[in-house]
Nucleic acid binder design. Structure first.
Lengths: 327, 327
DNA sequence: CTGAAAGCGCTTACAG
DNA sequence: CTGAAAGCGCTTACAG
């Protein structure tokens, strides 16, 4: 059987109270008993049961992370950074891949609540249906407005969309199209689209956006891209709202004999390490993923600690243009 | 305050025992009290505290997953599938990115033990230093021999290495080189290398392997690949032990004016969805990631349930050649 | 400096 | 069919 605090107490010839005290380094204890207790712990190979501690303290140091899927490189890297930062601050991560499915997200939130997590970081699309406000728990959202009170962290989407669109203009493209996820005004990411539309308007161009329904599922890229290429054979510039879609577009365009960048210039969004490794030719707007993760965790912990007033409602971190050879 | 079981009991006018019984649907209870209790739970918005339950049951339904990093597409996808399968079986995943650092891995194992996880899935390289055998906990390893008793799950590495090497031979390559991680005989993945060496020997060729020290860090690809290209300008076939290294190789070779596949044929290993999306040209050996995840979880749960005799020591799942245009 | 008691929110024998 | 009691492994007032 696993040794428990009481076993240590007996072996050391002290009360459980005393063992707890040396464990938590709290209160006055003579060096002698401290040594004796520590030796007993060593001898028994004792380690404390955090479940019991949590029951008492009402703190689990557990954080729930709900994202579409770690399979996606952006979320895979975000998860890595968030976990890393959590670990350095003494928090542990419970991971939930919702695939943007509402029923799954709800089930995950229930699970997290029952497990008494101290807070939740949400990076999914649920059209605001899951009501986090009523849950009475610390929440931070990544790139998504969940409610009027839940803080949002993300990249400077408008600036990113602007930089991408203007770059295509500067390169002399005449027919610049855009591919994005489903329109949802509540998402900061739709600002990428807004920026594209604004830039087009400024230059007297028509803004044409095609929608990919679930951008995380590669299967779903095919159809809209085919339609786009069919309906707009004149396209000579494309801004995709994420790198995977940009990659799909490039493949399909090449299959039609189009050359990139000679015939069509392409720019993506995200700039993950994985994309940079696998497709270094892709010009893209790079999100500061580590910083987004850090900000999300730090703000969440402030909420957990009750310092709500220190938490800004919106935090947008700067993006960076990575110009490579598809543009 | 969060309502607790006792609050429900009071509101329903029954004992806590009864509430617990309807919660767990155990024992005989009249339909009437059942209804009354359920109504009280609804009214108070009650949900049970799993921390308290775990303390009693000595079961957390928590599984720890230790991997190098979810940033890597293989591990990102593996994590997704593992979490998915866990969720469908009522288990939750605590994620640990060790970056293959021994001290981190040890700290994570400690943390997991204190949190009373029911089992651990390990997918990292630690040269067998962390002694999982002594930890007295259910463990399954992904592609790694942790000890004589810990079950291993992985792809059929030898077959994969053989298929890759033979394909290059079949395509007429004369100078086939290999890039792999650090040699460590304890890892099943070194079978990819062994297969390459065997195939070369069978065809009277010299086997030449270059090592990338930490294949998960793209920075580390550069030097060995440069050396390879400097020292073996005659190379006309390359088998890389993972797709990211293959991608790095292709980029660097192209910068030297080499054409792929005309001058050098290249084949990778892993075949993740992300690679298939971003670099569909890459010929690769695809691992059955979902099946690996499923097997790992199912075996772990068998261990947790004490059915140790049903758990095979080694499970290797079949790989698949995906032939595209780099070969 | 140290210990006995009560309690964190549940569950399960044991009675009735 | 239902309840009082004890306990899961810890921690913290409260005494001394």
């Amino acid at each position: 059987m696993k040794p428990k605090l009481n076993d240590v107490a007996k072996l050391a010839g002290v009360s459980p109270t005393t063992v707890s005290r040396v464990l938590n380094n709290r209160g006055y204890i003579s060096q002698e008993t401290k040594d004796r207790v520590q030796e007993a712990m060593q001898q028994l190979n004792y380690f404390p049961n955090d479940v019991a501690r949590s029951l008492f303290s009402k703190r689990t140091n557990l954080i729930g992370l709900i994202i579409p899927t770690t399979s996606n490189p952006f979320f895979g890297e975000l998860t890595f950074h968030i976990e890393n930062i959590c670990a350095s601050l003494g928090y542990k991560l419970l991971i939930c891949n919702s695939l943007n499915q509402l029923d799954k997200e709800e089930a995950y939130v229930d699970m997290l609540m029952r497990n008494q997590v101290d807070g939740i970081i949400v990076g999914t699309h649920n059209r605001g249906i899951v009501n986090y406000d009523q849950k009475n728990i610390a929440v931070v959202a990544i790139d998504r407005f969940l409610s009027n009170t839940i803080p949002v962290v993300g990249s400077d989407n408008y600036m990113g969309g602007k930089m991408a669109s203007e770059l295509l203009i500067d390169k002399g493209c005449q027919h610049i199209l855009h591919i994005n996820g489903p329109v949802e005004l509540e998402t900061p990411a739709s600002l990428r689209r807004k920026a594209y539309e604004d830039v087009m308007a400024q230059h007297g161009r028509e803004a044409i956006t095609y929608e990919v329904h679930d951008p995380f599922n590669q299967q779903n890229h095919y159809q809209p891209i085919q339609r786009l290429l069919d309906e707009h054979p004149e396209v000579d510039g494309l801004f995709a709202s994420n790198d995977l879609v940009a990659a799909s577009f490039i493949s399909q365009a090449k299959k039609r004999g189009k050359r990139v960048p000679e015939d069509i210039r392409v720019i993506g969004y995200d700039g993950t390490d994985t994309t940079r490794n696998l497709l270094p030719e892709l010009t893209t707007i790079q999100q500061p993923i580590q910083e987004i993760g850090r900000a999300a965790v730090e703000l969440l912990i402030k909420e957990i600690d009750g310092q709500f007033s220190d938490v800004p409602r919106e935090t947008y971190l700067p993006v960076k243009l990575i110009e490579a050879s598809t543009v």
